[in-house]
């Protein structure tokens, strides 16, 4: 089998726990990721599910090197990037993109949409790639002149997606990117991502708590609870025969579009 694009070994992340900071002495540390091992094969779509606060976003930020791991290793394309300094990381950045969970704070409020998408490309907002990216996420090209606060929640989320795909990366980490969208836009975004995976060989890690989306998109799924992986399985197997109680609880909590079924 070919080398995996991402390989994570015994990954641990600790953060200082400011809420229990003593007056003197060191701040106690909170262990948020407690030793994770997994791989993301090239061209695969990995789903990461789990409840609020289980550490999904932290894992994502550590993978794209926004957060410093405490222990363990992260290998990207065979190279160890665990503690790669910023300057050495920069050439790799174009290949590793992240779409953020909170669309409001991840778009610069004082730049126009055009500049937000164009800046990472070192282009101007008139660059055809900008309009193309907006088209991909189903937004009109006129949006380049708007500011983030002039868009609806779902439209903002799609700007974040457009910015990432315009870079043509090898890997995208998508953090809860469709939960603010209606089903039709969700389907559109998922179709787009599927197309990129199929045609361009994009590798995707898809964080979500929406299992119907995961089922549609992912090859494999990791279920997280309080900083640990409690279950890892191919998608079909996970849905047909969930092994862990927590996975079953997540499945049961999905609201079905049917008023006659008790919840």
């Amino acid at each position: 089998m070919a080398e995996a694009l991402f390989r994570v070994e015994a990954l641990r992340v600790e953060l200082p726990d400011m809420t229990r900071k003593p007056l003197f002495g060191p701040v106690p540390r909170l262990e948020i990721l407690k030793g994770l091992d997994f791989e993301i094969p090239r061209g695969a779509v990995l789903g990461i599910v789990g409840g609020s606060g289980s550490g999904k976003t932290t894992l994502g930020r550590t993978l794209v090197r926004l957060m410093e791991p405490t222990a363990g290793r992260i290998l990207f394309d065979g190279a160890d990037i665990t503690h790669l300094p910023d300057a050495a990381m920069r050439p790799l950045r174009q290949r590793i993109q992240m779409i953020f969970q909170d669309p409001m704070s991840s778009l610069n409020p004082r730049l126009t949409i055009g500049r937000i998408i164009a800046a990472p490309l070192n282009a101007t907002s008139r660059d055809p790639r900008v309009a193309e990216a907006l088209g991909h996420v189903g937004l009109p090209a006129e949006f380049v002149h708007r500011y983030p606060h002039e868009l609806s929640g779902g439209q903002r989320q799609r700007i974040g997606i457009a910015r990432a795909i315009a870079m043509r990366p090898d890997f995208i980490l998508a953090d809860e990117i469709v939960s603010g969208l209606d089903v039709s836009s969700q389907a559109q975004v998922l179709n787009l991502l599927e197309g990129l995976v199929r045609d361009l060989g994009l590798t995707l890690a898809f964080i979500s708590h929406d299992l119907s989306v995961i089922r549609r998109l992912c090859d494999r799924v990791i279920v997280m609870q309080t900083g640990r992986i409690v279950e890892e399985a191919p998608t079909e197997a996970l849905f047909e025969d969930p092994q862990h109680d927590y996975t079953r609880e997540l499945l049961d909590a999905i609201p079905t579009p049917d008023p006659t079924v008790r919840w």
Partner: peptide, 20 residues
């Protein structure tokens, strides 16, 4: 109707997210 048809039911893998 299209919106409702596009809504996935995780219990039924055949029904999946699709655009209107």
């Amino acid at each position: 109707a299209a919106l409702l048809a596009a809504t996935p039911r995780h219990t039924d893998p055949a029904s999946s997210l699709k655009p209107v």
